[in-house]
């Protein structure tokens, strides 16, 4: 089961005592703030978690995987996520736990 906004809001309600509407709004606004910053061309740095960076890609040749037809992939700006050291270390520890 994947973590969703509803569960994040539930946690804020349980642990911080925000009311349910406030908890839902703050989770919604948290993601909207990040989207808005990226949309206006700004990197987002969340220390301990990771950075959301922007990369401008040039046009490059591509192919329709079904028909094999060549179609150029247009120039675009994309979001990349670089996990921070702390998050990487915590996730690596998970790999250790599944190797018996």
């Amino acid at each position: 089961m994947a973590l969703t906004k509803a569960e994040m809001a539930e946690r804020l309600y349980e642990e911080l005592g925000l009311n349910k509407r406030e908890a839902k709004e703050i989770v919604e606004m948290f993601f909207e703030e990040i989207r808005a910053a990226l949309e206006s061309g700004n990197q987002v740095k969340l220390s301990g978690f990771g950075n959301f960076d922007l990369r401008d890609k040039n046009q490059r040749p591509g192919r329709n995987p079904k028909t094999g037809e060549e179609i150029p992939i247009s120039a675009r700006r994309v979001v990349t996520f670089r996990p921070g050291q702390k998050l990487k270390a915590r996730v690596e520890a998970y790999a250790g736990s599944i190797e018996q």
């Binding site: 973590l3 569960e7 946690r11 804020l12 911080l16 989770v27 948290f30 989207r35 969340l46 998970y94």
Partner: peptide
């Protein structure tokens, strides 16, 4: 309260990933 909310959200997300589970935020 806002500061604590942001830290709680990020901690919830990091905990989920380090337990090997996914996070799905529609539109994000």
């Amino acid at each position: 309260d806002v500061e604590l909310a942001v830290k709680t959200i990020l901690e919830h997300m990091a905990n989920t990933l380090s337990a090997g589970e996914r996070i799905e935020i529609r539109g994000f």
